[in-house]
């Protein structure tokens, strides 16, 4: 070994010693798609439903962040959401998302004015309480997480006119997620206690109905490759305002380009929104993690 090689190998071993000291924090240690994608409410899950996964690609030995942008084009409205989340040690997830619900030309027909846009800020927190959706393939016990979403909508006056009792509120949910690897399936069931009208964009509670109701969310997907999950979701919603608020469903494809970028495309059916029926359209969401 000549002097140059010796110097190089010494430098390398010093470098290794340096990284060894920091090896407890491990970047991007999870398997593809096992952080889920980002929902319209900012939590990790599918597109419409929050799952028990903790967002991002960090294991219990790491902390990671995600940003997302989501767009949903409906016949009479346009929905946008963008936000960020942090996953801590595959145990805790905190998130913030801002939703825009743009009434476009429909705003004039509703007497709100063209382009009238409802906004909502959603602050989410989720705690994984037991199980592991991936590793425990020898058991039926799912991964279970509990979460809360504090939502605050900005159009209090209009919400009041529609009969909404509050312009802010908190949703509480329990989510159970299981990956059945032997069947290449991903399953989720979520129970949500909520007062929210159209997830909170139209406020919370309604005339004569200002109390929590229990709503259910179900998702099922099949892994076609380690990068691609396709499936569907169904989410029940309360009808506090008496405006025939519909359940939501979608058919989605979530594709992990790599651990830094995922794309979700879906056909989403949001039913009737503020008396306008047949709100179905293309849902697109981009998620970047680091």
């Amino acid at each position: 070994m000549n002097v140059r090689n010796l110097a190089l190998s010494t430098a390398l071993s010093l470098l290794c010693a340096g990284t060894a000291a920091a090896e407890d924090l491990r970047p991007a240690g999870k398997l593809l798609l096992t952080g889920g994608v980002t929902t319209v409410e900012g939590s990790a899950g599918g597109g419409l439903s929050s799952w028990a996964f903790i967002g991002g690609y960090e294991t219990r030995d790491g902390v990671g962040a995600n940003v997302h942008a989501t767009y949903l084009n409906l016949p009479d409205y346009e929905f946008r959401a963008y936000g960020a989340s942090v996953g801590l040690f595959d145990r805790v997830e905190v998130s913030y998302t801002r939703q825009d619900f743009d009434t476009q030309a429909t705003g004039a027909k509703l007497g709100l004015g063209k382009g009238f846009t409802f906004h909502q800020d959603i602050f989410g927190a989720k705690l994984k309480v037991l199980g592991d959706a991936i590793y425990n393939q020898d058991s039926w016990v799912p991964q279970i997480a509990v979460g809360a979403q504090y939502k605050t909508a900005d159009k209090g006056a209009v919400i009041g006119l529609l009969g909404g009792q509050h312009d802010d509120g908190v949703d509480y949910y329990v989510a159970a997620t299981k990956v059945l690897l032997s069947e290449s399936l991903v399953l989720n069931a979520t129970l949500r206690a909520t007062k929210a009208n159209q997830t909170g964009l139209l406020g919370f509670g309604g005339p004569g109905h200002d109390r929590y109701s229990l709503q259910a969310e179900g998702s099922a997907g099949v892994l076609l490759t380690k990068r691609l999950l396709v499936g569907g979701e169904y989410r029940t919603k309360p009808n506090n305002l008496g405006l025939k608020e519909s359940d939501w469903f979608d058919l989605f494809a979530a594709y992990a380009v790599n651990k830094n970028l995922s794309v979700t495309a879906a056909y989403a059916d949001l039913g009737t929104i503020a008396t306008f029926k047949g709100q179905r359209g293309l849902y697109l969401s981009l998620q970047a993690g680091f």
Binding site: N136, L181, S182, S184, T225
Partner: peptide, 17 residues
């Protein structure tokens, strides 16, 4: 095949513990 890979991985996954 991917599904057969997953069947095999399902046997190995619990070894994480």
């Amino acid at each position: 095949g991917f599904r057969d890979q997953n069947r095999f991985l399902a046997k190995l996954a619990p070894m994480q513990r």
